[in-house]
């Protein structure tokens, strides 16, 4: 308040990089009005939408505001894609999950970090006849389903060499070929 008439009437704004502030008449509270890029809050202590960090170190060591890092598995047209303090990704796409959308969701397999793949995470889709597990249960990277005895293939859909007749819940039977009359 410049009208009191003391040397301390005007005080510097408590804002970074000498940015501007304004004082709320009723409460005397000071709010920074032009925080540096990526920052917001009364004292520019928060990161804006699309950024995360803790620029003033309010909960531990100070971390400047950085862009949300979600391994390319979020849509730039979305809002609120990561937690503005921890950076935890909140809107993972393409069946990915994790704090950085870094892995495939349960029931899917592939490489969530592969920036060139058209479809990073594919559905397990295990063959219900050949799997001993659930149709949505497979190895997160390879996609291998858990197969019944002598059943093979990524999705457990066919019999091993020397076996035939895939029976749901049972597996495949050994071929009963006469060793004398068979060529293999």
């Amino acid at each position: 308040n410049a009208l009191i008439g003391t040397p301390g009437d005007c005080q510097p704004c408590p804002c970074p990089d000498r940015t501007s502030c304004s004082q709320i008449a009723e409460t005397g509270q000071v709010v920074c009005t032009n925080c540096p890029a990526g920052r917001t809050g009364m004292r520019c202590q928060m990161c804006e939408d699309g950024y995360y960090g803790d620029p003033l170190g309010q909960s531990g060591a100070a971390r400047p505001c950085a862009r949300c890092d979600c391994n390319g598995n979020v849509d730039f047209n979305a809002v609120g894609i990561c937690d503005h303090v921890t950076g935890r990704c909140l809107k993972c796409l393409g069946h990915t999950e994790g704090d950085q959308c870094q892995r495939c969701r349960r029931g899917f397999y592939g490489d969530a970090l592969n920036q060139t793949a058209v479809q990073k995470c594919r559905a397990c889709s295990c063959n219900p006849a050949g799997t001993s597990g659930h149709v949505n249960e497979c190895h997160p990277q390879t996609g291998d389903c858990r197969c019944l005895g002598h059943v093979t293939g990524r999705d457990c859909s066919y019999c091993e060499v020397g076996f035939f007749n895939l029976q749901p819940g049972v597996g495949c039977e050994r071929c009963k070929c006469n060793p004398i009359g068979s060529s293999s």
Partner: peptide
């Protein structure tokens, strides 16, 4: 001018 300052919020 700003009508409302809600510095801790992201208003959509």
């Amino acid at each position: 001018k700003a009508v409302l300052h809600l510095p801790e919020k992201v208003i959509i």
